[in-house]
Design a protein around this nucleic acid. Structure first.
Lengths: 246, 246
DNA sequence: CTTGCATTTAGTGTCGGACACAAAGCCCGT
DNA sequence: ACGGGCTTTGTGTCCGACACTAAATGCAAG
């Protein structure tokens, strides 16, 4: 039976500072884009030295709650996905998650992304996807380029669904999984073609606003990927490549 | 076209320190549990002052890569979920995501969690879930307690599936969504009973190792939740309560 | 020789002051 | 009015210092 909020250990000054500013941001007293006073002034406000205050700021900065557009300006940051993506990616890397775990989840996220994209994607976005797909076709056989384009394709597809929660959740997972293509491509060269087929079918389904078909093809696409992983014997291999993050 | 790794801006000493130690951890030169030297020694190693080094440490600490079990001991941390959960939760809060977005994703994660739990959960875990469920039944009508127990139920269910990726991805989302029960309960008192029914059916399915049935009941459970949200008119409301995080 | 307590010691958290360097603002001569 | 040089302001880094506490050590009693 734990209470709602737990202030817990707050002896340390730098921690209190970070917590206080964080609270102000969450509470809405400070809004993304707002500029904060200089370090000297802030330090004065909180009654600590600059050194101490700076430690608190570092923490907020690395939490992505504030950032410095120029060294001169310290402002409240708008949370950005890639920030979280690296964090989760690192965590999963350290946890040594397997391809199986990544795949099980991706089997849900990508079909959902495709479905939502079919429902909400605009004409322009579909056209953008189409031209991206053209690049992919042209890059057949070029592994690294294909991976990069594939990541891009799926990320854009997810963005089209107008669901930021899905975008946030799937990005780090999909990234890690798709990167595994590097290890399966040598075993299954024909997967280039199957990927191209799947992508173009997804695009066609989007054009028809056929959510079911989009979802189905996305599912088949990811299933295909799994077959490749099986051929390469990766099912329970650890999915990284720590230096892939850096 | 972006290259793979981008070291980018690294003029700042504290940043370089954080990056270097992070790299050592990711690379495996430092493993979770390893103790690091004292600040003075580290500062000497990197050729900076303690103040500067400390700023780097703060950053690593807030990244969850190192932590202090006692103020005296600084060691490489094992990445823990709740760390990421607060981060993502905060991000979604600031993004002002809607219940709809949360629900759409949860409609995928919880059924998958139930399915995997049916496949991999141990007898002990199922019993644990059962007694948790008993508490929930006893708490019928007590909103806050019910919410807390519900969160716990679903988290445990997810843990049973032996998929850490799913656990990581769903936790912050489910937390935010379920907390919305606080706003729907007043409108739909009968949902206490429906929740109890769903949970006990899920448990029964787990006992029978019936993945399909477990998945189905989980889906119905979340659908029910959505109906409640509709009754309360929350569909496109912002899902928080910033102080729910604290 | 082991155990319990007091003491030393090492290390963290915080302070205050200081300086170089860069950007933002200001001033002035043409 | 305008551009270039000067001043101001603020960050990044350094240095030295001190209180407080937890770990290590030494000492005394069993």
């Amino acid at each position: 039976m734990k209470a709602t909020g737990k202030p817990a250990q707050v002896h340390f000054a730098y921690q209190q500072i970070a917590d206080e500013i964080e609270a102000q941001i969450l509470r809405g007293d400070l809004n993304p884009g707002d500029q904060l006073p200089g370090e000297a002034e802030l330090a004065g406000q909180f009654g600590v030295t600059r050194s101490t205050l700076r430690e608190g700021l570092r923490q907020l900065e690395s939490d992505g709650l504030v950032h410095r557009p120029s060294p001169r300006r310290l402002e409240v940051a708008v949370p950005q996905a890639d920030q979280l993506t690296t964090r989760s990616g690192r965590a999963m890397a350290l946890m040594k998650v397997t391809f199986r775990e990544l795949w099980q989840v991706t089997m849900m996220t990508e079909p959902l992304a495709a479905r939502l994209a079919a429902e909400h994607g605009t004409e322009d976005e579909i056209n953008g996807l189409q031209s991206l797909h053209a690049e992919t076709v042209a890059a057949e056989g070029m592994m690294k380029r294909t991976i990069s384009l594939d990541e891009d394709f799926h990320t854009r597809l997810a963005d089209m669904g107008r669901n930021r929660v899905l975008g946030l959740a799937r990005e780090p997972i999909a990234l890690l999984l798709f990167r595994g293509f590097e290890q399966i491509a040598p075993f299954a060269p024909k997967f280039y073609k199957r990927q191209i087929e799947a992508h173009s079918n997804i695009i066609a389904a989007l054009r028809d606003r056929d959510a079911d078909r989009a979802e189905k093809w996305a599912r088949m696409h990811i299933e295909d990927f799994w077959r490749g992983a099986q051929i390469a014997g990766l099912e329970d291999e650890i999915a990284l490549n720590p230096r892939a993050l850096s």
